[in-house]
Design a protein around this nucleic acid. Structure first.
Lengths: 224, 224
DNA sequence: ATTAATCTGTAACATATGTTACGAAAATTG
DNA sequence: CAATTTTCGTAACATATGTTACAGATTAAT
């Protein structure tokens, strides 16, 4: 598969024909990098001088403080932009550490080239605006999630969202409890404790990574 | 002063000549509303069907949960956009309650008109992108502020930022402790307690709204 | 100036979560 | 399969913050 086809799956190029995309890309310069698991792509505070487009793989954005507390903000999988909102606006610094979850491949486009790209195509420009707006929306809900509810609320929120569409009430957690604790901004023993208590109250049945929602109504009461 | 001059102070129209602005505004329709103190401009969850531009006044955006816990996200003063990132992207719902702090005046532009406005002027379009990006940046730092540090860290962060540029180490808090507690996402007695403890440790001197930083170094240790 | 409303300091107590530590279970690696 | 590493369950204890309540201080309204 040629690089263009990889590019074209990126949300930035939604509704852009491959032929158009080829023309666009011929006008700008970019470079490709490959990252191994746990490689650091960018550090919190680094100056943002261009835009990363992920072609394949998985990376995570996480915040840490001096004491080592971690809050994972999100996993970014596949064909996305990294930190899209930080090339513009007043504060051009990465807000998180960006770290590869597994072998990943990115394209880096310098700001001047990226601006050119946006100016050449209003479709790309609109896509970019949608992406940035989506990021703001994501962060808003993240604040709600992180600040407005205690641990059981977060568990309930997390489980209910992930079993909403499936007919089954059972899911396999995609993370270890340790990672999930980072996502919730709490410690691992606290998360385990909360899971155990929900299990003992027969609201969920949690055995390792497999979790089954037994009483949706009661679980909903924890979401705030 | 004519309405146009009020508009032109809005960040959306940065670097737009008044004459150009007049032409732009003649092409689109909008309506003006006035709000009294504590009037609700939009509620969390309402569908976003257009863009509010504030012309004067002060409003706040705050999140609440069912139990009444409040987290004030920000005060928006003067010539700004309200919830700019929520007209685009996938989730077109207000993420917060938007409430007038005092008598305020807004213009409402429906989405179709607003799109027209963006398409008519690339300067306006760039400004809008900067505004949305700035919002994301603001929310990122908000997450750090709210989740990564305990109360004294928040106080330290707040005080240090506000005395950084001033030669004096003294500031008058612009809010009551009650409002400040909302901004920090904590309860008022907890905030008072923390302030008192910092006062007793001679790190700050807090009497009512007047707060003086006595030991910058020690205060910085609380910021994480 | 008086009254009413709001704000501040305080305290006793409840609760949620963090800290640290350890062994058992499970998964991964050689 | 055995060895190693990671993950999970658990517990005792520490700490931060929430809850509720009340009185004195300050500010705003009449």
């Amino acid at each position: 598969m040629h690089l263009y086809e990889n590019f074209s799956k990126n949300k930035l190029f939604k509704d852009v024909e491959i032929s158009t995309l080829r023309e666009l890309l011929e006008e700008i310069s970019y470079k490709k990098s490959t990252y191994k698991k746990n490689d650091v792509i960018a550090l919190d505070g680094d100056v943002v001088v261009g835009q990363y487009l992920m072609l394949r793989g998985s990376v995570r954005g996480e915040m840490t403080n001096y004491t080592g507390k971690v809050v994972k903000i999100e996993d970014i999988e596949g064909n996305q932009l990294l930190a899209p909102a930080f090339l513009f606006g007043a504060d051009n610094h990465y807000p998180v550490d960006i770290i590869a979850n597994k072998e990943s491949e990115c394209i880096f486009i310098e700001k001047s080239s990226f601006l050119k790209l946006l100016h050449m195509s209003s479709v790309v420009q609109n896509n970019f605006l949608d992406i940035v707006a989506g990021k703001t929306q994501f962060l808003s809900s993240k604040i709600k999630f992180l600040t407005l509810q205690p641990i059981k609320g977060k568990i309930a929120d997390y489980l209910l969202r992930r079993t909403r569409r499936s007919l089954l009430n059972t899911i396999d957690l995609p993370y270890s409890q340790d990672k999930l604790a980072d996502l919730f901004g709490v410690t691992r023993p606290a998360l385990t404790r909360a899971l155990r208590e929900l299990d003992q109250s027969k609201i969920i049945c949690a055995k390792g990574k497999r979790v089954c929602v037994l009483d949706r109504g009661k679980l909903e009461e924890f979401v705030q």
